[in-house]
Design a protein around this nucleic acid. Sequence first.
DNA 1: CGCTCGCTTGAAACGGCTCAACCAAAGTGG
DNA 2: CCACTTTGGTTGAGCCGTTTCAAGCGAGCG
Lengths: 239, 239
Amino acid sequence: MVLKSKIDCNACTNTDCLIKRNLSSAIMQKMIQLKNTVKCKKNQQFILEGAPVNGLYFIQQGKAKVLKTGIYGKEQILRFVKDGEIIGHRGFGIGKNYTISATSIEDTILCNFTNEVLNEMLQKIPSLTYEFMLFYAEELNRSENKVKSIAQMTVREKVIDTILYLYRKFGENQKGFLNINLSRQEIADFAGTTDEQVIRTISSLKKENLLISQGKKIGIKNVSDLKKEISEHNYFLNS
Amino acid sequence: MVLKSKIDCNACTNTDCLIKRNLSSAIMQKMIQLKNTVKCKKNQQFILEGAPVNGLYFIQQGKAKVLKTGIYGKEQILRFVKDGEIIGHRGFGIGKNYTISATSIEDTILCNFTNEVLNEMLQKIPSLTYEFMLFYAEELNRSENKVKSIAQMTVREKVIDTILYLYRKFGENQKGFLNINLSRQEIADFAGTTDEQVIRTISSLKKENLLISQGKKIGIKNVSDLKKEISEHNYFLNS
DNA sequence: CGCTCGCTTGAAACGGCTCAACCAAAGTGG
DNA sequence: CCACTTTGGTTGAGCCGTTTCAAGCGAGCG
């Protein structure tokens, strides 16, 4: 659903947003008039793997998951995204197709820039291109760490690693629960295991007094205790 | 070993090299005078994970592996690199440390650009920055495909996937052998399994007339037959 | 109220890893 | 030049962790 009333980038509070941080120039002020604002309900897929690229999305408000579909329809969730973050790699270039799918996990407002607008921005504003380059380099590093984790960690470690990732990215509320509610299946699809294994691991961690949980809500009792469990894997952690 | 006699970028034949493709400007001609040429013997580590960043490397000639070291010293090889390709992500920025290690797998000549030179290049030549951004975006896509593969494939499939990757990247010689010789351990470290499993898989594939091998040399009998084995994983393949 | 969906648990089967022994080739030193 | 050592490849057997399958449970919803 495309809204006519755009969110004004100048009034936006997402200080980490690449666009927000590069608003000073006159060109950018012109460019942001050309963006589309899209509203998504929970569990709505707004990028489909294999479909022609339709530009880049920024999350104005909400949360989403980025994934690739594998054999027998099995999903591999690559990352979760929140306010101010980017979805739709390579939403530039010509005649390309998306290499990932994206689905909102709660009601979400998206800012969309078409290929044409994006390309013009990148050509005219080198500092923006530079920031995009840094963004991709960071993501690449994160992804490469994930390759190592999935290849080398046990199921228990992968689940702990995932919960700590969610904690870093979304934080926790006053009650000590993570600011994101995922199904066991989604946790499994990110961690690279099955939902039963996630359930078993979470049960164990509760018994060991490392976690609390009520339905989908998960809370970490003591972050450093949890970190200890996977510390051997993270000599050089940087994600 | 740093050589005094630099390889002249203008005379270089690596047409895919980002530097080579952006030589036209006067600034670049000045910048390439500032590069270092480094010679590596086989099995020499020239980037150490965790060490302060010392710029970016291009392979002028040779081959190398890029890896992260995991638990109990287990290596995860992330990719192999050949003539014209880049090693040392984020060899820019200040006060950062390398997040990967790199080791030559045959005698190799490297072109090194220091942080300062690289930063100046990226600031003054937007088209170069743009190409770097595209490079990272491509690598990110490749890495995310690898996450999915490692998470979902069986050992047999991972080994086949690895051999096909090596075929795409390095090609084969007149005798039908891949233009790269790796130990079983290295194949395992890339595929995300153990050397015994690689050996077993290769033995089976030989018996099934899908592969030939003599020592480290591996050849593919029929590429499309091998591709069939993993086709179910690659609805949207793009790496 | 009955249905569905997601969570939970147990048991069994499978695949992959580990360990150990053997072999071949290549390199080293007397 | 030959014996010795080392390194990497190979194979088999047993074990362990993970996945799969199946069944039960509870909350939420039409």
